[in-house]
Computed example of a mutant assay.
Amino acid sequence: MTSYCFLDRFPVEILHILFNYIPIPELYYNLYNVSDYINAILIHYSISLINLKSFLQYHVDFICHHIKPNQIISLKLFDDIDNNGQSELFFSHFHIEQFTQLQSLTLINIENTFLEFILPNLNRLNHLRSFSFDTTEDYRMINKDYRLRFTQSTSILLNTCTNLLSQLKQLTLYNVQEMTLKSLSCLHHLTISECSTTELKRICSEIPQLKSFNACLQGDPIYIKDLSSLSNLTWLILKIDVFKNQFLSMNFIEEFLPNLFQLKHFEFQANYGDDFDDGKRW
């Protein structure tokens, strides 16, 4: 194809900046084959994010025919009722190990049968630094065995991806039960959807280098004092679901919060408690 258009006058650097403001489906659907010059730029353009949740079904197939996996920096796979099967369609074109430049991977509501083809090969992604693997609340309501599914998938991750865990900077999981946390030696940012007090103690003991921690804590609130050992925290978000026969007061917060000298952002939510509206104690 030999064609020319007005956009051919722009340098590559300017077009890359412009491309960053255009959704990926629209970018490739509208600009591919406009000219040889634009095609050459699109082929080598580093795609900051592919989010399948925002893609229509025909977008997925079209994009897969016009991109290379080594262009993608961040990938988000999200399966639900509205876009069920898009992740499977996407990976009918690619294998996860082809995403050699991938730095961030998010897997939401992905079925175990499909995960078996993804998780064992994550060790091959040498640039991956952020990994999110979780389920939504709607998914948990429909799939009552989600805890068992998650445990099975986590087992695959632990048995096959030791190198990956040691290189991660950011991690999001439903829980960290039965995980060996000491392998997360470089981890700085951790998000846990369901965290027991036992898991909290292990996190504080085995990952003291954390800089941000976001968790929904369940169980006896007395153990939140262990957070004082995370002295490097700059960002802390806590949702605490205590048992109905237990009570959460400002005293528990005062046991750890004054020790977090570097903390700049703190969010707190509790289903039971008292004294939190006393401004003098904050």
Rank of each mutant, 00 (worst) to 15 (best):
S212D: 05
I240N: 02
E254T: 13
Q101C: 15
S193M: 09
F247R: 14
F91Q: 06
N143F: 09
L200N: 02
S132N: 11
F94T: 11
S46M: 08
N232Y: 07
L102R: 06
P258C: 06
F117V: 14
F150Y: 15
F62A: 05
L148C: 14
R140C: 06
K169D: 00
E199T: 10
P208R: 06
T191F: 01
F213C: 02
N175V: 06
H65K: 09
I222E: 01
D79G: 01
I24D: 00
S104M: 11
S87H: 10
I43F: 12
L52N: 02
D274C: 10
I192C: 04
T191H: 03
S104A: 13
K239H: 08
E199D: 08
I14F: 05
L89P: 04
S185L: 14
K225P: 03
I14G: 03
L230C: 05
G279H: 15
F6L: 14
P221E: 01
E199Y: 01
C204Y: 04
F243L: 09
N259Y: 13
S48G: 05
L105D: 02
D79P: 00
N175Q: 15
F99W: 11
N33D: 14
S92Q: 13
C216D: 08
L184P: 00
F114C: 10
H127K: 09
N251C: 14
E254I: 10
L217I: 09
Q152G: 10
I192H: 02
F99Y: 11
N123M: 12
R202M: 11
Y272T: 03
P221F: 01
L18M: 15
L158G: 00
F247T: 14
L119C: 09
F261M: 12
S229H: 10
D8F: 02
E116Y: 12
L148E: 11
F256W: 09
V242M: 04
N126V: 13
T234I: 08
N70F: 07
I237R: 11
F131P: 00
L164H: 02
F256D: 05
N30R: 13
S3C: 09
I110F: 08
T234D: 07
N259M: 14
I73T: 08
H44L: 04
